[in-house]
Write a protein that binds this DNA or RNA. Structure first.
Length: 386
RNA sequence: GCGCAGGUGGCAGAGCGGUCAAUCGCACUUGGCUGUAAACCAAGCGGCCUUACGGCCUACGGGGGUUCGAAUCCCUCCCUGCGCA
């Protein structure tokens, strides 16, 4: 089980500074959570990930169930031993895959809202099903993206799998709704997610901490209803999931509706956010934890996040030919092992040569940069600036 | 010197009389990615003009010819590879 301690509440915002004590050590919050879907940060060893300053990782129930299977992980001594990660770990429940392999795939879209999503021809009406899976009262029939085989995952299954995987913090099984879903669809899906949440609570036997997930998309009454309901079930913390509306303004609205209705003494995790520009904002709105694929995912696409000036940052695309002649480190101010030892010209070369080390170097630096970025946010809370 | 096979856009390689500014791939350029189906996806990629539909010009080794029409057929020259002297 975990214990969340709040060290300081901001007087300027809902931001708070805290620590989460887990069986695998302490997490200083607010914290960024890198995504290790397949029990790995792609391209890095667990030791390397630790040396980027990452405090905890989130892995994935759906993917590990598919390969290598939770029984194998359990026999390997649990996910920590399996991947040699000594620090805290979370597992996502598979609820995101209900979206990403469902309507996400159908519309070829991510979870973030775009205004074209709600054009009448793009809306998902209540009662419709994604092409590749079937969402039922008991759970979801998936088609494996590996071989097309049918596979069922519901709240009971997800919790039992997460029990065997053995992360410190697990998530309730939900349906992450698409930003294309109309009000009636979101309402029905949210109500089903609530019923699933109760089943998750009843199913969990382990001593793992479990976070319930608030849904309701961009709709105020649904977000409020969901926050109140999920808050009432005795979870050890909360995830805020699904589509968050239009841009930062939309995200802020969703957080303003939900955060005040969640038990203040428990940690709040914003699922799937964020960009660097989201972070301080989200923390001000009372978020303690947030995970995002961006530093790792973008790193593999040639993007480095670097400082620009004293308190700003920018994205560099090392794939651009200009960097072949650039003898600077990725980020002059960065003290990470990559910036101490390698230059942009070399990384640009490796990228063009399609050498995997390019991705490794960028992933490493980006994770370090994100860690430092969030550490700085913690310091700002300490100093009363946020 | 003789015989055979070839010379196509940055590379590689199709096309072998009209629907070819030229398939596909690579490279290149630009754009997109927010609880990872993702070392991915999309678009562009001879020049000029047009918001667009589209139009014009220059191009398939050089030159010449046949034809209403040629990257595609013929002649000639140059070059490359292989074989024989």
């Amino acid at each position: 089980m975990i214990k969340f301690k709040i060290l300081k509440n901001s007087k300027k915002s809902r931001a708070r500074l805290g620590v989460i004590e887990t069986p695998h050590g302490v997490i200083e919050t607010p914290a960024f959570v890198p995504v290790a879907t397949q029990a790995v940060i792609k391209t890095l060893t667990s030791e390397e990930v630790a040396s980027t300053g990452s405090q905890l990782l989130i892995s994935n129930t759906f993917h590990l169930h598919l390969k290598p299977g939770e029984d194998l992980v359990k026999r390997a001594g649990g996910i920590h031993n399996f991947m040699n990660w000594k620090r805290p770990l979370m597992t996502d429940s598979g609820g995101f895959q209900v979206f990403s392999l469902g309507f996400g795939m159908d519309f070829n879209s991510g979870k973030m809202f775009k205004s074209s999503d709600i054009m009448p021809e793009n809306l998902i009406p209540v009662g419709s099903q994604p092409r590749n899976l079937k969402i039922t009262e008991d759970g979801v029939y998936f088609r494996s993206p590996l071989d097309g085989k049918e596979l069922f995952l519901g709240p009971k299954e997800s919790i039992k799998i997460q029990d065997k995987l053995g992360a410190d913090i697990i998530f309730a099984f939900d349906e992450c709704t698409s930003s294309h879903a109309d009000y009636d669809y979101v309402k029905k899906a949210m109500e089903r997610t609530h019923r699933w949440a109760k089943i998750c609570v009843a199913t969990k036997k382990s001593d793992q901490a479990m976070f319930g997930i608030v849904q309701g998309s961009r709709f105020k009454d649904l977000r409020e209803e969901s926050a109140k309901f999920i808050n009432s079930l005795g979870f050890n913390g909360f995830g805020i999931g699904g589509d968050l509306g239009n841009g930062i303004a939309g995200m802020n609205k969703v957080l303003d509706w939900t955060v005040p209705l969640l038990d203040n003494a428990l940690p709040r995790h914003l699922l799937g956010i964020g960009y660097l520009c989201d972070m301080e904002n989200v923390v001000r709105h009372g978020i303690d934890l947030f995970d995002c694929i961006v530093p790792t995912h973008y790193g593999r696409r040639g993007i480095a996040f670097v400082a620009r000036g004293a308190d700003s940052y920018e994205k560099l695309n090392l794939g651009k030919s200009a960097f072949l002649k650039d003898k600077n480190p990725l980020d002059k101010k960065c003290d990470c092992a990559v910036c101490q030892n390698y230059r942009r010209n070399y990384i640009a070369h490796l990228l063009r040569a399609k050498e995997i080390t390019a991705m490794k170097l960028l992933t490493f630096h980006n994770l370090h940069f994100f860690s430092k970025f969030v550490e700085n946010i913690r310091n700002k809370i300490k100093q009363g600036k946020i």
